[in-house]
Design a protein around this nucleic acid. Structure first.
Lengths: 343, 343
DNA sequence: TTGTATGCGTTATCAC
DNA sequence: GTGATAACGCATACAA
């Protein structure tokens, strides 16, 4: 069976192709009756218009793409749901596109704009180390959402960002631990080369220690292993196991993500110790699992829903030229749960 | 700035469009030198070919699509990685496409085949209640992977499936609980209307009870709440809370997914009880979190990696016409961990 | 209200 | 090896 085209449908109906096209696209200038007939024939023959051809012709597609780096991050799933709803509510259609770890998201974006005639883009997650020049290749409005950006690099430089202040929130957590009597606080952080989220969270840690007059002990700064996928439970587990075996003394571990923190908890338990009695453990992100874990996880909860709504609002304001690109920093919340205690 | 096309590049280089096309597509009939020049100009101008136009012209795209229902399922992420690697290894390109809960995956597939000139499709997850007739609309080879299919419906009816035997594996778990002295085993299952995975796991539960001469108590059969997203921790938590408050006696809970089981554990702990001392809890799937949870989770581990490899192998065998569609059932493994005990 | 003709950006089929 | 040119399937300006 040959693939069926709009011409075939037109012939079957005894009408011109443009009539069929009008029927498909809910064009106003068409007789309701002929439209019904056309739609009927289309249904009977399982005709589906070729999207490549449509996109090629159209200049306007009312489509928003969300580009997400790494699909496995549970942090994003609730945001995506909101994106989806909000975008549909505005009568736009929504394309979720995953960009692989080694791909350049800007290149992918440029390609997608051409292919799908996008009206706007959301870049979700990942570390963003592009120059402003590179970003300018993207010719449609876009928002960088929950993306770790280099301080003073993109934010305040005319790009639209939605994020939390990783430095400040990280400080908040470490300060909380200090105020609860912890003086030997280990951190599970990202590698030195990371210029993004990880670095800023580490800086928050350092500053909090300093302000609390606590000696900064390099041996307590542990970086994720590079031979294991980063920001995972397994990584947190292995790093913590090493830490415990090093016999370096500490009373708390601050992991820069909840997944890492959960791995840390497990490592501690397997060493026959208790959380939080022997060691306090804190995370960052506010994943759902933190609520259900045992012990429930002390963490920094990012206001994901609000951030998602703001991302879409910002994007549409940009599309409708109501605003110029700007950044919006959301406050996150210190959630105190069972995994940390006062000593 | 106008979008730049192949024509513009051709003019800039002083060559014909076909030469540019040849350069882009690694065509053999082209002088290496002119190719270099063309590629240079392309790079300088950030030219990116329009995929819609390419797909429109091409008959052959060497592209495989993976259609996944619901993006949040952590069960899939490791499979996707393998798909990606394997597909690239075969010099095909890979498109991940998410299909929304209410969408019809077959319609999406048919559309995508036309748009992207797909060579093959993997349907991943979800409940599959399509008729054979409907499936035949898909004109390229496809594999149903880890999809709950109605018994005797699709399997053995000329469709390619990769799955575990949900009935048998569920039986295995419940039988294990029975053999460990549990006589009052609650189940967190799916709603009655579910004709897919959930139903088969429930049937396995029933049969195991029967074979162990245990009375089937309807009050211990709990279904996920429909007002909360299914197969989630929250759902397991709420259902278990209800169960505990009902004062119906039981010594074990078998949840038909790990996420549900984790929610169940939390509900039990919050009621001041202990897992496994007061209640044993078992799950199904073998998610990574089960290893890190406290207590670690007794579960049925599906051999996700093997299943992913087999899925791709099967698909390429189909594409290369080495085989006809067939189903392959993988054995899963009962993983005994800390969340269950003998009584 | 409807049909015809043109072009979207690319690849493939020819000639050269 | 290279360059015109005809499709690919559709939307749309324009004619009817």
């Amino acid at each position: 069976m040959e693939t069926i085209t709009i011409k075939d449908i037109a012939k079957m109906c005894g009408v011109g192709v443009s009539t069929v096209s009008r029927a498909i696209n809910d064009h106003p200038d068409i007789n309701q009756e002929t439209k019904n007939i056309v739609m009927q024939v289309i249904k009977e023959n399982n005709y589906i218009p070729n999207n490549s051809a449509r996109n090629l012709k159209r200049s306007d597609s009312r489509t928003i793409a969300v580009l997400i780096k790494g699909i496995s991050n549970p942090f994003f799933s609730s945001m995506i749901k909101i994106f989806e709803n909000e975008i549909q509510r505005k009568k736009y259609s929504f394309v979720l596109h995953r960009v692989e770890e080694q791909e350049d998201e800007i290149d992918v974006a440029v390609e997608l704009v051409k292919e799908k005639r996008l009206r706007g883009i959301v870049f979700l997650g990942g570390h963003f180390t592009h120059t402003a020049e590179k970003l300018e290749q993207v010719k449609v409005p876009f928002v960088l959402s929950t993306i770790g950006v280099k301080e003073n690099n993109l934010i305040n430089k005319g790009f639209a960002c939605v994020a939390v202040d990783d430095f400040k929130e990280s400080y908040k957590m470490v300060d909380y631990l200090c105020k609860n009597g912890h003086k030997k606080i280990a951190i599970i952080s990202s590698s030195i080369s990371d210029e993004s989220i990880g670095k800023r969270r580490l800086e928050g840690y350092k500053k909090a220690l300093e302000d609390n007059h606590i000696f900064y002990n390099m041996n307590l700064v542990r970086t994720m292993r590079e031979d294991i996928e980063t920001y995972t439970m397994k990584n947190g587990y292995e790093v913590t196991k090493d830490l415990l075996e090093s016999n370096e003394e500490f009373t708390a571990i601050y992991a820069i993500s909840d997944s890492l923190a959960i791995g840390a908890c497990r490592a501690i338990m397997e060493a026959g110790k208790n959380v939080p009695n022997d060691y306090s453990v804190a995370g960052f992100d506010g994943l759902e699992i933190g609520l259900y874990y045992n012990p429930s996880l002390t963490t920094i909860r990012q206001p994901v829903e609000e951030m998602a709504f703001e991302t879409i609002k910002m994007l549409f304001d940009l599309i409708n030229k109501k605003t110029t690109p700007d950044s919006k920093i959301f406050p996150a919340k210190l959630v105190i749960a069972e995994s940390t205690r006062k000593i």
